[in-house]
């Protein structure tokens, strides 16, 4: 198993004179499921398209399976790509959609048939062979697109926001489906998402991107528990982020004395890490909402907005009333500047 199965080195990607990705270095391990996570416009699709060969890099190199493919055309890279819109061929039946790539390889008919049928079975679409894509549901189309890529036995399968067009229930179902297919086939998968929870649930490793650069790279656990920058912390649900200056938490011109000493320049707390009901600080309840297992408060404090989760065991504090809270040391996440 190669640790540099897909290797992007000093990759610069641009559209005309706009540089979308200024300098990317990334090694993808063989057989892993890796997620490109980041906000809209951060360069996820651009990076995918470069790996697939649909976008020629301005500079830098792309290696796949030990071979430099920087100048290899998209149809010779042996890569699969599932588009966000699925990009199924509307004039062909489901069967012919899946068989499309196999037929191009000029395989004997019997083999095309066998592989296509196996591919459709893998994604649970047996019996749908003669349907047109337009006659299938969103989830079925998604699986068809997956099968069309899988039967080609690609070295790497790229998926661009594969689940974003599906409703919540189907999304969960397809998540499991993707994981299962990845386990069964062992194909190296790169998938794009801007949904933090999707990345955490699916990926072996997560590449958090911001503005064309890698902000942090790590396992789901690492990213969730130990974000290193304010951007990463914010993305991973640390909603209260403050600078530290001379023993005070600072937000613009507002300052609050910190109850402990730290050398970290920035501290962050999840809403669940803020304790409500007791503590040295006080905030006025701006909103309060019931979220099943807990209650979500937004407090107006001298530091600005504080998001805090409280146990539902405690009595609800009405909007407009003040409440004491604490930003404890043990739940604080220390961040780089």
């Amino acid at each position: 198993m190669s640790d540099r199965f897909v290797s992007l080195t000093d990759l610069v990607l641009s559209y005309g004179s706009t540089v979308a990705v200024p300098n990317l270095n990334l090694d993808i391990h063989e057989g892993e499921l890796i997620a490109l996570l980041g906000p809209s416009g951060c360069g996820k699709t651009t990076t995918m398209r470069a790996i697939a060969g649909l976008l020629t890099p301005t500079s830098g190199s792309i290696e796949i399976d030990g071979r430099d493919v920087t100048r290899t055309p998209a149809n010779k890279r042996g890569i699969g790509l599932v588009f966000q819109s699925y990009a199924l061929f509307p004039h062909l039946s489901a069967f012919e959609n899946v068989a499309f790539g196999l037929r191009l390889q000029k395989l004997p008919d019997a083999q095309v048939r066998a592989k296509t049928e196996a591919g459709m079975a893998t994604v649970g679409l047996t019996g749908f062979e003669s349907r047109k894509p337009a006659e299938m549901s969103g989830g079925q189309q998604q699986r068809l697109a997956l099968a069309r890529s899988l039967v080609m036995q690609p070295k790497v399968l790229l998926l661009d926001e594969p689940l974003s067009n599906l409703d919540a229930r189907l999304r969960l179902e397809m998540r499991n489906e993707l994981q299962r297919v990845q386990r069964d086939t062992g194909v190296t998968m790169v998938f794009v998402t801007h949904d933090q929870s999707e990345a955490l649930a699916l990926a072996d490793r997560i590449v958090l991107m911001n503005d064309g650069k890698i902000e942090q790279l790590g396992t789901a656990r690492e990213l969730y528990a130990a974000p290193e920058t304010a951007f990463a912390a914010d993305f991973m649900g640390f909603e209260n982020i403050f600078h530290v200056e001379g023993g005070h938490l600072v937000n613009g011109s507002a300052r609050l004395p910190l109850g402990f000493t730290t050398d970290a320049p920035v501290l962050a707390w999840r809403p669940s890490g803020v304790s409500v009901g007791a503590g040295p600080y006080s905030g006025k309840v701006r909103s309060s909402s019931f979220a099943g297992g807990h209650r979500e408060y937004v407090l107006d404090s001298p530091l600005g907005e504080i998001k805090a989760d409280a146990s539902i065991e405690t009595a609800e504090v009405p909007i407009g009333q003040s409440i004491a809270f604490d930003l404890p040391q043990d739940t604080a996440r220390r961040l780089m500047a």
Binding site: A74, N75, F83, S85, A87, L88, F100, L104, S149, M152
Partner: peptide
């Protein structure tokens, strides 16, 4: 006709002309 359909065809092995 969306352009990504052609890109999908290329990724599956077509030349641009195909």
């Amino acid at each position: 006709l969306r352009g990504d359909m052609e890109e999908a065809a290329v990724i599956l092995g077509c030349t641009r002309f195909q």
